[in-house]
Every structure is written in structure tokens, then in C-alpha cells.
Design a protein around this nucleic acid. Sequence first.
DNA 1: ACATGAAATGTAAACGTTTACATTTCTTGT
DNA 2: ACAAGAAATGTAAACGTTTACATTTCATGT
Lengths: 343, 343
Amino acid sequence: MSKGIVKIAEICGVSIATVSRVLNNSGPVKESTRARILQIAQELNYKPNSNARSLSRRRTDTIGVILPELVDEFFMGVIQGINEVANRHQRYIMLSSSHSQRDELETMLEFMNGGRVDGVILMAPALHHTMKTILKSNTRPLVLLNCRPGIAGIVSINFDNFQGAKVATEHLIQHGYQKIAMITGPEINNDARERFRGFQSALKENNINLPKSFIVPGEFNIESGYYGFMRLMSLPEKPRAIFAANDMMVLGAYEAAKSLKLRIPDDVAIAGFDDIFLGRLLNPRLTTVHAPIVEMGRAAMQQILKMVDEKWRPEEEYTIHLSTGLVIGGSCGCINNNGNNFV
Amino acid sequence: MSKGIVKIAEICGVSIATVSRVLNNSGPVKESTRARILQIAQELNYKPNSNARSLSRRRTDTIGVILPELVDEFFMGVIQGINEVANRHQRYIMLSSSHSQRDELETMLEFMNGGRVDGVILMAPALHHTMKTILKSNTRPLVLLNCRPGIAGIVSINFDNFQGAKVATEHLIQHGYQKIAMITGPEINNDARERFRGFQSALKENNINLPKSFIVPGEFNIESGYYGFMRLMSLPEKPRAIFAANDMMVLGAYEAAKSLKLRIPDDVAIAGFDDIFLGRLLNPRLTTVHAPIVEMGRAAMQQILKMVDEKWRPEEEYTIHLSTGLVIGGSCGCINNNGNNFV
DNA sequence: ACATGAAATGTAAACGTTTACATTTCTTGT
DNA sequence: ACAAGAAATGTAAACGTTTACATTTCATGT
């Protein structure tokens, strides 16, 4: 027995072209036959085979998403935003998170050249050289998250890390703290570098000296926050406030503070970056910079769709900065901001 | 200019069949031509068009994943497990999370009949009637997460909610508590029901009475935990211990306890279910039941692949129970278990 | 040198759509 | 009743693979 569109055509006694026209609302069809075809399709529970469809139309209505990891709410938020917009536009998303650099490149190649997806959203805080080469080939619409590639025709979306870090640091300065240290993120990470720059900028503009010892490297995880804090607090000259490049490290710092019996913010003030869920539950509640992650996902998808649907490509390198905002808690020394925490 | 396989064939002066054979390692090809073809393919940066491939082979090497939501670490963990196994087997995953019932059904139909995926992993704590009908049609391999559909030919994977809840409750009982209440989950939620059953079972076996007032309904979120706790603690006869059907509600309970100035576990002991990341940071650290979420994702993918690759289908209804385990913290009254928390 | 079978290659038909172009069938004005 | 144009429908060629089957080429034993 024949299948799909052909079967419908046979039953209705028309050609497959007519059926296709009805199903896609392309071209004129007599009302009566249209109704008939629609009805039969319904009865047969017909769903077009999307592979055949994609092959013919040269588009799949799916977007590839490549993330470096699949842990913590950060990625979750991004996916959520992506999915939201995808749903609204009836698109599907193909998700991939490769642990090895090797796999990541492989997936990228498959997405760019395999015809599986119409466009790719790539989150890569650090760009491997080979990856850059692939990106330059520019076969398909591409949106980059959290990095600035410096390649024309590609859209990249970033948080305003610089501004966010600067504002947070300025807030600490306004509290009157002079000895401010920072636990930074990985050197290769774009966000981390920008945040560090923002931090430096704020200090510089306020003529505050930043000793080398006040810059300790972190790895964006709890452990490094813990050790970073420990290290800072064992300096002969201790900082009065600490800005951590992300909230995860703050968790470690809180733990360290607890084990050293240091009070936050009385002994040392702390500010973070990201505004993770947990930050609101800390005691004292964490002062941090809100990073609009869901918004980032949404924006990414919207851009991709714009490129796919309207065949639009930016002439030059095109970067969107999502504005960040300070979330005031009690950890910086502000009072009356511990109401919500309950841990 | 010709494309893909045809182009390679032209350049190498062979037929497309030979090229295909080389690329797929199917059938014998002279070593020299094989080498040549491989080299040209490499030079051209050739990637087979997967739509054409899927159309012809009638398989896509991608698995559809439908989740009810995309929030919190629970789903993240499941996806992580799924992705892990998918990567290992060179499969792609198509992710979808629909907010409306309507969309969910639509996606399911598309996945089942649209030829986009080889199989589907569906997480649906509650099964709508229409959905059941779709599942029964049984067009493609299907693995269900967190629900028992009672349909032959379908694999479902569940946590051992009953046992987990029972063990947790027994632990509370062993502490000597007699007045034990529970904040339950949504009635329609399968996990929630099972956990409640386990709770009841433990009490019954220990001949402990369970007054109606000690069962308060929750919604698996922070707020309902908060209000559930409040309600229990405003009873004329207050419980000495509370078992919450999930950890999220425990967060609310902790908050409520704090605002009521009740100490945990001295005034009221608490145990939860899920073992969320945050639980380990609570003060006192939460006693809860570990739900192996990543493992669930892995198992789901493995089952699907088994069905797809080996064309295997269970004769009857086939349910896998993932064993849960008690995680002892300080919230139940056990001492020396507050070491790790630092909030 | 030849028959025989295996190895290597080619041909062409799927797979299920979309779509440009051709053809037929309706309207409508005269 | 007919021409002209619009509306409806049909035909057939893509889209880029895989694969059953047919054909050619090669090695081997005689």
C-alpha cells in the first residue's frame, strides 16, 4: 500500500501536487477538494515525513544548540529561553553538550554541514582555534553566546559583564571599603576577563590601589571560591571586601568564612556575579549582579530565526549586550536586605 | 556544479554507489579507490546530508525528549544522563518542553509520526487521557519517565519512590518521633502518590496513628512547603517530625520554621525527598532521599537505544525501578551531620 | 588459454516530499 | 457560442542518499 501524500492522493483521486498544495496552503485548490483532502488526511492521521520535507525544502525547522556543559541553572536558563521562543515559532531544537573539545568540533561540523539544522546557537566561553576556522566558513546562521569571536557575519550575545562588574565594585566602594580584592574566573573565559576588567576599571576610576595579592584566580566553582577566600584572608593585609567573579565561588567563600568564624559583611563584605537562585537564600542574602540568562536564550533564538527566516546576516561583527543589574542583598553591608533568606 | 556524493563520484570517476559503499563501509571496494574517495571526501569537507540519509535509511539517529518543564536541576540531571549516553552512541537528541498540554500532544504526535526521531523519551508525571491513546498506538520505541502507564510494549522508568519514602519515614520513627506529618505532592503526580504510600506504609507497620490533619497537600514548590509547614505548626497538636514529598517544599518549610523561630530538628525534625544540591548546604543539612536523576536519564537512553538498535520491545508492561537511598543530614535529629553545610 | 567464482563496480529504483511548468477546466464578457 | 484569461489540476523533475540487482573485472586452478 502506498504511503503518505500518495495514499491521500489516491483515495481522493487527485494528484500528489494538489494534496501538497492543500497541506501547505500553497496555490489555489477548489474548496470542495480541499475539504475532502483535509478530511482524509485527518482520518489517516497523516503527518508529513519531515525528512522528505526537509530534503526538498532545504530546511529542517530545527535549530542546533551546543553547550559546553549541562550542569547548573545557568545552562538550564539559557535552554529555557531558547525553548520558549522555539515553541512560539514551531521550531525544534537539537541539543548537544559535548564533554571533549573533539566532540564539540565534530558536532559543530555536523550541524554546519550535515543538513540537520537551519542554524546553530553555540555557547563557548572560550574558542578553540580550530573552532574559529569552522565558524569563519560561515555556512549557516550562527549565534554565539558568551564570547566575542571577531568574525564578520556572526551574531554574538553577551552579558554586559564589564558594566555589571564595574557597578558591583562601585557599590562596594560606596560602602567605604578601600581594600577590595577579587577572586577571578578562568583566564580563558571571556566573561571572566570582562568581569575582571570592570572590576579594575571601577577601582582605577576611584583611585584605589589594587595590590597583586588581592587578585586570586578562581575556577568558577565552589572549591576555588573556598580556597580563594582562605588565601585572601591569610594575607598579612586582609581585604575588607571581596568581589567574586561568579556566585558559585561565593558559596565557597561563605563556607570558608564560616569555618574561619568571620562574619559577612561585618568582617568582610562580599559581592558576586550571576544572581543564582541560591544567592537569595544565603544568610546574609548575597549582593550580586543579575545576569539575564533566560533572556539570553530568548535573544539567541530570536536572532537565529531572524537570520533563518529573513535570510538576514549582519554585515560586520554584531554583538548584543544584555544589560546586567545589581541585586542588593546584605552581603555587601547594606542593611534591611536580609528579609527573604531563610537558610 | 553537482553536490555531495555525486560530486565525489565525478571527481573520482566512479559511481555514487561505490562512494556510498566507501563512506558507509558497506560492501567491498578496492583499496586504492577507497583511499582516493576518502581523500577527496576529506578535501571537500564532505558531510552526508542527513535528511537524505534518514529518508533512505528510515532512521534519523536522533531521539526525541519531551519534558514537562525545563526548570530546576531535576530536569537538568535527566538531560545530562540522556546526553551522556547519546554522545557515547553518536546519537542526537531533540529536546522539547511544552508548557501547554496541547503543545505536548502536538509534539508527541510529530515525534511519533513525523519521522524526526527514532524513539521518544517522555517524562510525564501525569498522563492525560489523549496522551495515553497516542502511546497505545505504539508507533515508535518509547520510554516513559516517572509514570506507570499500564500499557504493553512500553518501558517505564521510575524511582523507587515507595521504598525511599518508607525508609525515610522509618528513619524518623527510629528517632523516636511518634507524631509524624507529611506535606504531600500533587495528587495527579505519580511520584507524589507513591511517596505518600511509602509514608503511610511505614507508619502502619509501626502502628503509628496518622490523623487526617497531619496530611497537608503541597505543590512541590517552595511556597506550598512554607504554607504546609505553617499549617501543621498551627495545629492544636503539632507534629514532632515532618516528611516532605520533595526537597523544594523543605526549603519553604525551613523558611517557615525560621520565621516561627522554631529550631530544626530540636523543635521539629524534617526529612525530604530528591536530594537537591541545595539540601547539602542547608543548616542543618537536610536528611533526604537520594533520587538518582542522572542515572534515570542514562537508563532511559540505554533502553531506547536497545529498542531502536535491536528492535527489541518488551512483551508486557516493563518497569524499571531505580533504587533510592537515604542521605542523612542533621534535619532529622542525627548529630555530627552538619559538617558540610556552610550557609 | 579458459572456465569459474569472487571481488569490484555500476544502474536504477526507491525514500516522501516540494515545485516549476504544462495542461485542463472553469468564468466571464461579448 | 466563443475567446480570453483565471483557476484548478496534473506531470515530472528535483532534493541527496541507500541498496537490490546486474554487470564487469580480476584472480585462480586447470
